[in-house]
Computed example of a mutant assay.
Amino acid sequence: MKGVVFDMLRDMVEERYGLEGWDAVLEDADSDGLYVSTQTYPDEELVALVSSAVKVTGLEAAVLLKAFGEYMAGELYQRFPDFFDAADDLIQFLISVDRIVHMEVRKLYPDAALPTFEYQQSSPAELLMNYRSPRKMCMLAEGLIVGSSRHFETPVAIEHSPCMHDGADHCGLKVRLLEQ
């Protein structure tokens, strides 16, 4: 996992739980907390930090990962607005993630281990995203969708079935745009 993800997790925890909260996460995870945004770190390091953040915040892991995804969407917009601005709407943006955004990330970071998405659009207001990743961070992906929906001012409902945590080979994230 790229260091930029660790930086964003730190920023979220510090913003919501203060520097003391982040220090408690680092202490519990036995981490020095020093990350270079362009460097790659073992997935186990992020898992340890998330597990420690669960203890410090009292949130369930799925809730914490979803909140982190929502936070990341805002941070990604601040750092890479062109990806968001190139899309006319939320559905177009979501479809661009695997086809454009991840392609550009791989140009910058050839060693990046990114999830993959397959898409099925049954109507202009509904998109099925089949998520695959050995990390099984589908709740992070769900949070990124919700955070992106806020950016596009488009409320959504997400149905999450099947799920890799229940033995499936992928997670189905059906995104339905809600009328405002």
Score class of each variant (00 low, 15 high):
57 T>L: 05
52 S>A: 09
63 V>F: 12
69 G>S: 06
40 T>H: 04
40 T>S: 08
48 A>V: 00
26 L>V: 01
91 I>V: 15
62 A>D: 14
48 A>H: 10
96 S>L: 00
86 A>I: 03
58 G>N: 06
70 E>F: 15
60 E>A: 10
76 L>M: 04
48 A>L: 11
36 V>N: 11
53 A>W: 01
93 F>E: 00
87 A>P: 15
58 G>I: 14
70 E>R: 10
37 S>M: 07
91 I>H: 04
23 D>T: 07
43 D>T: 14
23 D>N: 14
54 V>R: 01
37 S>T: 07
52 S>G: 07
64 L>T: 04
51 S>Q: 02
50 V>E: 01
53 A>S: 04
77 Y>P: 04
93 F>G: 00
36 V>K: 11
62 A>T: 10
59 L>Q: 04
60 E>C: 09
23 D>I: 05
96 S>F: 05
62 A>V: 15
94 L>C: 08
56 V>R: 05
85 D>N: 03
74 G>E: 08
29 A>V: 03
40 T>V: 08
54 V>Q: 03
47 V>P: 00
32 D>I: 03
67 A>K: 06
50 V>G: 00
91 I>T: 09
90 L>Y: 15
40 T>E: 15
57 T>G: 03
42 P>Q: 07
54 V>K: 02
69 G>F: 03
35 Y>T: 11
38 T>D: 10
61 A>Q: 08
37 S>F: 06
88 D>M: 00
20 E>A: 15
58 G>P: 13
56 V>L: 08
79 R>V: 10
60 E>T: 05
49 L>R: 01
26 L>A: 06
45 E>R: 05
72 M>T: 04
88 D>N: 01
20 E>P: 14
67 A>M: 12
76 L>P: 00
21 G>W: 02
39 Q>N: 13
51 S>W: 00
67 A>D: 14
36 V>D: 15
27 E>A: 07
20 E>Q: 10
58 G>K: 14
55 K>N: 03
82 D>P: 04
79 R>Y: 12
88 D>R: 00
47 V>R: 01
71 Y>F: 01
64 L>P: 10
66 K>Q: 11
56 V>Y: 02
85 D>V: 05
40 T>P: 07
74 G>H: 05
62 A>W: 12
51 S>F: 00
61 A>L: 10
45 E>F: 02
81 P>N: 11
54 V>M: 08
74 G>M: 01
91 I>P: 11
84 F>Y: 12
25 V>W: 08
80 F>L: 12
89 D>Y: 03
53 A>H: 00
52 S>L: 09
81 P>Y: 09
45 E>P: 02
95 I>C: 04
79 R>P: 11
74 G>F: 02
38 T>M: 05
96 S>D: 04
78 Q>S: 10
58 G>F: 13
39 Q>W: 05
90 L>E: 12
78 Q>N: 14
37 S>D: 09
24 A>D: 12
75 E>T: 14
66 K>A: 11
44 E>P: 08
65 L>V: 09
69 G>T: 07
86 A>Q: 08
92 Q>W: 01
22 W>I: 11
75 E>V: 10
42 P>V: 01
59 L>H: 02
55 K>H: 02
65 L>T: 15
26 L>S: 11
62 A>K: 10
95 I>K: 11
27 E>G: 02
36 V>S: 14
87 A>S: 13
23 D>K: 14
